[in-house]
Design a protein around this nucleic acid. Structure first.
Lengths: 208, 208
DNA sequence: GTCTATAAAAGGATAGAC
DNA sequence: GTCTATCCTTTTATAGAC
């Protein structure tokens, strides 16, 4: 392959669609938008994708397959403590909000709420993306298990971290003010501090 | 007015649009959908509303003006304790999820994420709806202030309750399983329990 | 595998009679 | 204030030459 070899049609479409869905949503992005951005013709796109929904599916698969490389690894570089990794990930969202002038929306969350009558394949991919995200958090919690209260529902707490991110992003975007996100994260931090303190407290003390 | 007097066009359109936006989203609801459901003709609708966005605005104003009567009062009937009122409200969402076969989405949250490039008037109304919701929670927290830690950021905690609801609803809908919502609420309950315990603890103890 | 042209349908909105 | 008909644009998707 020559150095300036263009990416294949499939990749170009997926990357363009990803940006457009992120910026405008799925329904508000037309095939014409994708063609215009990729400089492709309709024939090329429809040669690879049967229809618009198949582009969406490819985008969701891209997110699914890239979470480690595109999200977690950059967020966790140089951060070893598993609890701090959770807040390092949230800090990355803080910066994504700031860098988009408070218009950032989680692409998965936005699609999950935009698509009311989603095809089962699409819905399954949305769910898988959520699961991969919260499972990554759960692995952090597992690593820190000995500092956390015995019997803690780590899966539930991991899902709660996802909830904090999604709710914080939603409010920051609606108010166009990252402070809404930050206040949510601060409460979550407080929650973790209390959990760590509870776990550290001597057994004799009435626990709770 | 006769007992069987029909509601005026404006009200009929708003109620129908509310249901349709809730079920299908804003972009996926056509004017034809609204006309079909209300049994009105295009002329009648456009006589009252300049365009589709004005219908959306009227719907958001309806939510804004009806939160007390339609949401808070029913949720809080027979519940006096302010902290329990918070969880009574969340319980109401639990049942809305169940009654919709796990397809429930918060109408405001869904619109907030669906409308990526919303008109300022629309965005302002979305924000006002969020504010009214979390302010209602904040009033509960104010009532319970003496049982909560001194210096607690009650506004932030109220926003965090909204986040818990929105994140829980989002996950329950995506997974089509109310258990995701319930687990989130359980963590929030744990958070409140820790806050109440912290506030009740004698001052001498290192209060972290 | 890529190109242009276009089909076919849906959607928002308007005109003008009544 | 309501009715029907229709305009105009956008959008998804396809046909068929190259």
């Amino acid at each position: 392959m020559s150095p300036k070899e263009k990416q294949d049609v499939r990749t170009r479409v997926v990357l363009a669609a990803m940006e457009l869905f992120f910026a405008k949503g799925y329904n508000s992005t037309s095939i014409a938008d994708i063609l215009s951005r990729t400089q492709l013709n309709a024939g090329s796109l429809y040669h690879v994708f049967p229809g618009k929904q198949d582009v969406l599916i490819a985008v969701l698969e891209w997110y699914r397959d890239g979470i480690e490389e595109n999200l977690l690894r950059p967020a966790w570089e140089g951060v070893e403590d598993p609890i701090e990794r959770i807040f390092a990930l949230l800090d990355r969202y803080h910066w994504m909000i700031v860098e988009t002038d408070n218009t950032f929306g989680c692409p998965i969350g936005s699609l999950a709420l935009e698509l009311h009558e989603a095809d089962p394949v699409v819905r399954e991919l949305l769910a898988v993306n959520f699961t991969n995200w919260s499972r990554a958090i759960e692995r952090c919690l597992d690593e820190a298990a000995d500092r956390l209260p015995a019997g803690l529902d780590r899966r539930a707490l991991a899902e709660f971290v996802l909830t904090t991110m999604e709710g914080g992003v939603m409010q920051a975007r609606t108010y166009r003010d990252v402070a809404y996100f930050d206040r949510n994260v601060a409460i979550l931090r407080d929650h973790f501090d209390m959990l760590l303190a509870r776990a550290a407290r001597p057994q004799g003390e009435f626990a709770r």
